[in-house]
């Protein structure tokens, strides 16, 4: 440590400046959190109104759809009442929205069970699948992005960037079909679809492996590119030059300083990808016949089980808004400048 680098807290040139900018100001953080919480509530209310209205304007009455063409008007009317389809628009919205706040998501028309039970059931497939895919994606993207950034302009960098372009361009359901063709049909390492349930954890994980790979490929490609540009961005910062001047090697500077700062945008993307994976698996779940949330909503749409569609869509939107809120809070906790606004 060079002698001029030593300085005690006492002779910091701008003490006031220091506490305001680098100290963790709980009051400002709470104010910011409340502000964000308020806009989160507004977003949720807005989203629920939009979803409700979209479902309302859908042609084709659920009761008529369930009873078929030969039903008499009286039975249709009776079923409508039974399903809670009577009453004014406002009453129906209130019944649905207030029910959801209490955790009552309505009763599925076709399954005849509470939607919350169905969702909880399916979440046991969708949540592990999303986490599995996300871990794979991060495990691939972190080292790959770092290698590309560290070797900017080299053959490795060009190769990685070319490969990630391909990964983004591949439609994931097609990639899923190729995986089935290679690993399920030709090599017979995995089954082509279905889900055995969590009573057999090994078999369950195995059943989720091909879908997770199919989901992870485009996500990993995007993440690796974000990782690379984030690391490159931090490499240009003054504190990296300072670290190098202090005698750290290039590798040490990257690992100790650039990497940690580069993680902020990378974590944002991971947060967004997680909520996307929960909902975005809809097609992959269909390819592999997995009983997840995506398949639930897809079947709900085709069977006109509108309560399921309404409530599950709302849940997915809630997940996206919540993740965005948490990422914003994490940002503010890390970066004091954001709290000022």
């Amino acid at each position: 440590m060079p002698p001029f680098g030593r300085s005690s807290r006492k002779d910091t040139p701008f003490p006031a400046f220091r506490t305001r900018e680098t100290g963790f100001n709980l009051g400002a953080m709470l104010r910011y959190a409340l502000h964000r919480l308020f806009s989160l509530t507004l977003s949720l209310m807005g989203a629920s109104v939009v979803i409700f209205l979209v479902i309302e304007v859908i042609p084709g009455d659920s009761a008529t759809f369930m009873l078929g063409l030969n039903a008499t008007p009286e039975t249709v009317a009776a079923l409508r009442e039974d399903l809670g389809l009577g009453g004014s628009l406002w009453e129906r919205y209130w019944a649905w929205a207030s029910g959801m706040v209490r955790g009552d998501f309505g009763t599925s028309y076709t399954y005849r069970v509470p939607v919350s039970d169905l969702v909880l059931d399916r979440l046991w497939v969708s949540l592990p699948l999303a986490l599995y895919a996300l871990s794979l994606s991060a495990l691939i993207a972190f080292p790959v992005g770092l290698v590309a950034a560290a070797g900017r302009g080299t053959a490795a960098d060009y190769g990685i960037m070319g490969a990630t372009q391909l990964g983004i361009a591949v439609p994931n359901f097609w990639f899923a079909m190729l995986l089935v063709l290679i690993f399920a049909v030709n090599l017979q390492w995995f089954s082509a679809g279905g889900f055995p349930g969590w009573e057999h954890p090994g078999a369950a994980m195995k059943a989720l492996t091909l879908p997770a790979i199919a989901l992870a490929l485009p996500q990993a490609s995007i993440l690796a590119r974000v990782m690379r540009s984030a690391v490159l961005e931090t490499l240009d910062q003054d504190y990296i030059r300072t670290a190098r001047a202090r005698g750290l090697s290039h590798r040490q500077a990257v690992l100790r300083h650039a990497l940690r700062n580069a993680l902020i945008p990378v974590l944002t993307i991971i947060g967004l990808q997680f909520s996307f994976l929960l909902a975005g698996a809809i097609i992959i779940e269909n390819v592999f016949f997995l009983p997840g949330l995506g398949r639930l909503i897809f079947q709900g749409i085709t069977q006109r089980d509108l309560v399921v569609v309404e409530s599950v869509t709302m849940l997915l939107v809630f997940a996206v808004i919540l993740v965005t809120f948490l990422v914003d809070l994490a940002y503010a906790a890390v970066d004091p400048r954001i709290r000022q606004t």
Binding site: A47, T313, I321
Partner: peptide
């Protein structure tokens, strides 16, 4: 932005 775009697209085209 918060809406799952593929889900909504499937909903619109299905309906």
């Amino acid at each position: 932005f918060a809406f799952p775009s593929l889900v909504i697209a499937i909903l619109i085209t299905a309906v």
